[in-house]
Structures are given as C-alpha cells and as structure tokens.
C-alpha cells in the first residue's frame, strides 16, 4: 500500500502540492484525475522518486521512501514499473531491447531467456513479430503497448501510468484500458494512473481521486465519484466549460 501524507511541493514560490493526502490500495487500480497543470505529473514523480518533496511523507508498506538514499532507491525502484506519457522508448534500441532492458541490466539471465520473457510480455500486450522494429517505426498506440510491456517486464508490484491514453484515438484508448485491466488482474498488481480521460477512468478504476489546487478534493469508487456533488468534481466529470473551474 502507498500512503501519501501531507505532501508539499513548490516551484519558484508557486505551491503545486499543498498538503496532499492519498492512499493507493494494494492490488487495486487508483486513477488520479485533474486538470492539466494541477500537479498530477509532479505527484507521480514524487512517488517514483524523480522529485523530492518540500515536506510530507510517502509510505510504501509503512516505510517513508522520501528519505531513502540513492542505493536504497535503486532497490525500491525494482518494485516499480512506469509507463510514460510519450512511452519514452529508447530510440536507439529495437523493441526487444527496449522491453528487455531492465532484465539485461539487473538479472543475470542468458540472452535466450531474456528473449523468451520479452516475447511473452509483448504477446501479452498484443504485439507479435515486432521485436526487431525500431520505435520510430511504431504508431502511437504500439509505442504505448511496448511501453507497457517494458513497464511490466520485471513483474513489478506497482505500475505507474502517466496519461496512458493521451494522443490515442478512442478505439486504441479502449484497447489500452483493456490491457491495463487484463495485466493488472493477472498478477493483482497495484496500478496508479494519472489522466484526464474520464472514459478510461470509469472503465479501469477501482478508486478515483481528484486533484485540484494541490489537494485531493474527492476520493471514492467509480460509483461513488459519479454521485459526488462537489461542483468542481461534477464540472470536470461532465466536461463542462461553465462552472467553478475557470478556463484560462
């Protein structure tokens, strides 16, 4: 379980996270929604250790990971996988090398074993015979799938998704949502996703949290969030320009 307690972060005196509290349950999919620029990416960068908070705690199984040393982080990071918004595939490597990268770096496995794991993970995300392709030859949806295969190649306990459907057509978005559900159910992994894709949220989430002005203003199941009467939550879920959320 990941517990975030009273997390604060400012950039150039601008408060981005303002005493944020959130719990991501083990073996569940928690989706964090919110407008662009509200600090969703900043939040996940804290969870994965790319940013250090000004104050507050992030507890992973009860241990505060914000205070870890570099060596301790290296160990903790092996429990995480991450799918980046643009997939962040290494463009000088083939698909197979991308997916097998963490295995090659951390596991002393023979090349044939790495190859079979890579093929299995690619098959799981619906990609076959793509091993030798370069990232530049892939479509946006294929890149996300390869990114997902890379994120789950070490069978991590926690996978973080940064805008998994941004830039994809609705059909491809739906297939990514299916993959998220399928891969999560297979190993009861803890998934944390940030998105402003409400369709994706309703489809995959066990819990939904809404981030607004640096705080979580709503946290509930999908059914619960649909019934939430906070006007900010309502406006965001209904995608209306009129309401307390200003267009700027």
């Amino acid at each position: 379980m990941i517990e975030i307690k009273d997390l604060n972060k400012s950039f150039n005196h601008k408060k981005v996270l303002d005493g944020l509290n959130l719990t991501a349950e083990t073996g569940k999919i928690t989706v964090i929604i919110g407008r662009s620029g509200e600090g969703k990416s900043v939040l996940i960068k804290h969870i994965i250790g790319l940013l250090k908070p000004d104050s507050g705690q992030i507890l992973l199984d009860g241990k505060d990971i914000t205070k870890l040393t570099e060596d301790e982080w290296t160990f903790v990071l092996k429990r995480f996988g991450m799918l980046f918004q643009g997939a962040a595939l290494f463009d000088s490597m083939t698909v197979a090398e991308n997916v097998g990268f963490a295995l090659t770096e951390h596991m002393n496995l023979p090349a044939s074993k790495v190859r079979s794991v890579v093929t299995e993970k690619l098959r799981r995300v619906g990609l076959v015979d793509t091993e030798e392709m370069m990232p530049s030859e892939l479509s946006g949806g294929m890149k996300k799938r390869v990114g997902l295969a890379r994120a789950i190649v070490m069978d991590p306990e926690i996978v973080i998704f940064d805008e998994p459907t941004t830039g994809l057509d609705p059909v491809m978005s739906d297939s990514i949502a299916d993959l998220m559900i399928e891969t999560q159910r297979a190993q009861q992994t803890t998934y944390i996703a940030i998105t402003h894709d409400i369709t994706l949220t309703y489809k995959v989430a066990d819990y939904v949290a809404m981030l607004h002005e640096g705080r979580i203003i709503a946290y509930d199941t999908v059914d619960g969030i649909k019934k939430n009467d906070n006007p900010i939550v309502r406006q965001f879920l209904e995608g209306r320009a009129q309401g307390p959320l200003k267009v700027y």
Binding site: K45, L50, T74, M82, G86, F90, H106
Partner: peptide
C-alpha cells in the same frame, strides 16, 4: 533523451 523522458525512464528502471 532528457526532453522525451528517456533519462527519467532509465532512472525508473533503477539504472
């Protein structure tokens, strides 16, 4: 690699 988050990806893979 920095602006396309590939360096962040390396980090998240404990490299």
């Amino acid at each position: 690699m920095r602006v396309t988050e590939q360096i962040d990806a390396l980090y998240t893979m404990a490299v």
